[in-house]
Write a protein that binds this DNA or RNA. Structure first.
Length: 270
DNA sequence: CCACGCTCCTGCGCGC
DNA sequence: TGCGCGCAGGAGCGTG
């Protein structure tokens, strides 16, 4: 499941291959994604030059003079640079062709999306109301304090709410709360400022570490596939039910919050 | 405004 | 070894 570090790694991986390049054609083999790929996508995109690739939360924004392609990898989406003649495999939904190379979008579970917009992408309804980037200065304890005020929902659920802060998926929410020593069930509105500061630092550290790890394993190009891959062996609690807490040795507990698997140390996290 | 639950989908792990 | 069941999960959206 691509989370923000994986999306950022994907962005950095593909950008050198397509920045400044002009789309020669678009092949849509399977329109079925979270929202059906528009029949007009090919004509909208063909002939456009990709000026740059931005990221907002887990959305990648492929900017052109005429409009922007908003791309979300969903749960199982991935992007690869392939020779345009490489035969497609199962779940290869879309090729965006640049000369002899193609940017190939693959998505078995079809939770991803490709949307074309001619308006200011920052005003697009999917982008407009997103919370701050977790690695920016806007994301700080005071912001969390305001967003959490009077909220009784578990802090983990709100930490994963993209309207409060973008890019913190299930795995990193678990990890950040562990590092901050905060119980994931705790009512968000009942966490004092100093602990929110610790949470902010933990979110930054967890995501920053993962991006750095992705950067170091970046090969000839990139992937954004399944699990955190390169980061997997650095997980302290996620997926470690009944194993020893790396901090105190108590067994890691697994519960469900908001229908999502939640792992924490009942000793270290209060 | 807020809380919560439903939904989409397929690969994979597990139990038998 | 094979089969079938159920889980996993981002995030938009509907409901109360």
């Amino acid at each position: 499941m691509p989370e923000l570090p994986e999306v950022e790694t994907a962005r950095r991986g593909i950008a050198p291959h397509i920045k400044g390049k002009t789309v020669s054609s678009v092949i849509v083999r399977d329109r079925r994604l979270r929202w059906p790929v528009s029949p007009k996508l090919a004509s909208d995109l063909t002939g456009q030059r990709i000026s740059d690739i931005d990221r907002r939360g887990k959305y990648l924004l492929f900017n052109t003079k005429r409009g922007t392609l908003l791309l979300h990898l969903g749960m199982s989406g991935s992007l690869r640079i392939v020779p345009k003649t490489r035969p497609p495999e199962k779940h290869d939904h879309v090729d965006i062709v640049f000369g002899c190379k193609a940017l190939r979008y693959t998505d078995p579970r079809r939770f991803g999306s490709l949307l074309w917009t001619t308006r200011d992408p920052m005003r697009h309804r999917l982008i407009r109301d997103l919370g701050p980037e977790p690695l920016s200065d806007v994301f700080d304890a005071v912001h969390l304090q305001a967003a959490f005020a009077k909220r009784k929902a578990p802090v983990k659920a709100l930490l994963m709410d993209s309207h409060i802060v973008v890019g913190v998926g299930n795995i990193y929410a678990n990890e950040a709360l562990f590092r901050a020593g905060i119980n994931p069930k705790r009512a968000a509105g009942r966490i004092a400022l100093p602990r929110l500061e610790k949470l902010v630092a933990s979110v930054r550290a967890v995501l920053g570490d993962a991006i750095a790890a992705g950067g170091t394993t970046l090969r000839d190009f990139l992937v954004a596939d399944g699990t955190p891959g390169y980061f997997q062996n650095k997980l302290d609690v996620y997926g470690r039910e009944d194993e020893d807490c790396v901090n105190c040795g108590a067994p890691v507990r697994a519960i469900v919050i908001g229908q999502r698997a939640t792992y924490y140390c009942p000793q270290c996290q209060r």
